[in-house]
């Protein structure tokens, strides 16, 4: 805490941050270019591309749809993932490794394969409910992230603390809320963020399951790139970057969890 940081370390961290952040600045700069096509460095200054994107009902529709999808998927992934992670880490169950392997398997297979397999399955089942299909498909790929991150925090839970609380008179629900929850909260939040972002950014699953009425942002972005490569693409990318940034800030403010703690 009070240890002095060597200037070398500071310099290295600075360089790493620069490498990470610099590519994110490029679309921001390209998005203000007053040209009909993308140039870097930008020529002139205009915000018209943002206006164009924000006024475009297709773009807005896709963005809102992706938000809705990611929020629902995250809620379901947490509802399924937290009890599952708790069960897998706190009890010895027969076939535990097999269960974990099964849950994580969607991350081992290329997502594009998972996506086409799901489409085939839904087709055989005769399902036409695209929205439900997308929710299931995204949950399949978000759940592993939630379970991995929540499991990691459950593994670190000190069981002695629960015993101590119970001995001091805390009934099980109080132990859960006042002792276990504070210990696993960072892991759950990290899982929620991963889940939200994985769903929000997903292309390969959505590509198979989406239809014209349920068209998430990454698919939209791809079609726009094919339409014309003008700075409105950079504007959309910038908006997505800013949105992710906003998400992180909101989480820090609302939940009082610093990113440093999430990373640790």
């Amino acid at each position: 805490m009070t240890a002095t940081v060597s200037p070398w370390l500071k310099a290295i961290v600075g360089v790493i941050l620069l490498i990470v952040v610099a590519p994110l600045v490029v679309p921001l700069l390209m998005s203000i270019s007053d040209t009909a096509y993308i140039v870097f460095p930008p020529r002139g200054f205009t915000l018209k591309w943002y206006g164009e994107v924000l006024a475009n009902p297709e773009a807005r529709g896709s963005f809102l749809f992706s938000l809705e999808l990611a929020a629902i998927v995250t809620a379901i992934s947490l509802a399924l993932g937290i009890p599952c992670a708790a069960g897998l880490t706190r009890y010895r169950l027969p076939g535990q490794d097999a269960i974990l392997g099964l849950i994580l398997s969607p991350l081992i297979v290329p997502l594009i394969v998972t996506g086409v397999a799901l489409l085939q399955l839904f087709s055989l089942l005769g399902s036409r409910a695209t929205f439900a299909q997308l929710i299931i498909g995204h949950t399949v790929i978000c759940l592993p992230y939630v379970i991995r991150s929540v499991s990691a925090s459950f593994v670190l839970v000190d069981r002695n603390l629960e015993d101590a609380a119970a001995i001091m008179g805390a009934p099980p629900h109080v132990v859960a809320t006042r002792v276990i929850w504070p210990q696993v909260r960072p892991g759950i939040l990290a899982g929620a963020i991963f889940s939200f972002i994985v769903s929000f950014d997903d292309y390969p699953i959505s590509m198979w399951l989406a239809d014209g009425d349920h068209f998430p942002v990454p698919l939209y972005l791809y079609t726009v790139i094919e339409r014309s490569f003008d700075p409105s693409i950079a504007a959309i990318s910038s908006l997505m970057i800013l949105f992710a940034l906003l998400l992180v800030l909101v989480i820090e403010k609302v939940f009082g969890i610093s990113l440093a703690r999430l990373a640790s």
Partner: peptide, 14 residues
């Protein structure tokens, strides 16, 4: 446990 009205000291203090 929580109804036994005991106190306990743990090895790692908990």
């Amino acid at each position: 446990v929580h109804k036994r009205n005991l106190g306990m000291l743990f090895q790692n203090y908990a």
